[in-house]
Simulated assay, not measured.
Amino acid sequence: MSWAMRFLGVGNAGAAGELGSASAVIEHDGRPHLLIDCGLEALAAYLRRYVEPPRAVFITHVHMDHVGGMEQLFFRVWFDPARRGQVALYVPAAIVPHLQARVADYPGVLAEGGANFWDAFRLVPVTRGFWHAGWWHEVFPVRHHLPETAYGLRLRGSFVFTGDTRPIPEMLARFADAGELVAHDCALHGNPSHSGIDELEREYPRELLDRLLIYHYASHADGEVLAARGYRVARRDEVVALPAPVEARVTATP
């Protein structure tokens, strides 16, 4: 069984036009397993690649470059009776109120009435993690603005996706301890919400730095500088092979 991470976009909010909004699809045996974040550019890229809307989405946080495609996804799903209410939306419980406020609370999601935003989805609030397609996905808090507003994701032994974050050595000591590829927010220069490469080099051991795959940078030129510095830099539309998860898959019983 093969696993891969496909980057729909790798840019920060200001670089979405050039690099796409930061988002990835975990693929299993060549098929989409899970979409991570759903910005407007990310959803368009997903539909170009896979044609059909995603069946499962994990949301790291609710900045619009990560959830701006949710309204369009609602319409795609709501008007398809076979998908309505079937799309799993895994959302850290602490950010459900923020997602409600930003994308679901507008009075009248349909002009005709008769529908709530959440009717299109199967909302699954998560804390430590969630089961999806028989696999346990771990969820952990990261450092992005206020506490408990942004989260990362791990499939043990396969990958870690930090989402938008400052350096988190204490979290990765626990959630990247099984040789995973670590897709990490990183730009040339950090700020109060995002990591800079100098900060990662100060905070992380060499072994972890060697497993990083950098995304969420400001421009193609910045990506080239990071690559010249010796780091692996994710590119828009790139597919990266992943190690197989170390946990056995659970087969559901009737």
Rank of each mutant, 00 (worst) to 15 (best):
A4S: 08
M5S: 05
F7K: 00
N12R: 10
N12M: 08
A13R: 10
G20H: 06
A22M: 07
L34R: 00
L35N: 03
I36L: 14
I36Q: 06
R49I: 01
R49T: 05
P53Y: 02
P54N: 04
G68V: 01
G69D: 01
F74S: 07
F75Y: 09
F79S: 05
D80C: 12
P81G: 05
A82E: 13
V87W: 04
A88R: 08
Y90T: 10
V91W: 12
A94W: 10
I95W: 11
H98A: 13
V103H: 04
A104N: 07
L110F: 03
A111W: 08
A115K: 04
F117A: 12
D119V: 07
F130M: 03
W131K: 06
W131F: 14
W136Y: 11
H137G: 03
V139F: 04
F140M: 04
R143G: 05
H144W: 06
L146A: 10
G152S: 09
F161N: 13
G163N: 02
D164P: 11
A173P: 09
R174T: 06
R174Q: 15
F175T: 05
D177Y: 04
E180N: 01
V182F: 12
A183N: 06
A183F: 14
A187Q: 05
H194K: 14
I197G: 13
D198H: 07
E203P: 04
Y204V: 12
L209D: 00
L213E: 08
I214T: 00
I214M: 01
H216D: 00
G223Y: 03
A227S: 14
G230Y: 12
A241R: 11
A241N: 05
A241H: 10
L242S: 04
V246G: 09
A248L: 10
V250W: 13
T253I: 11
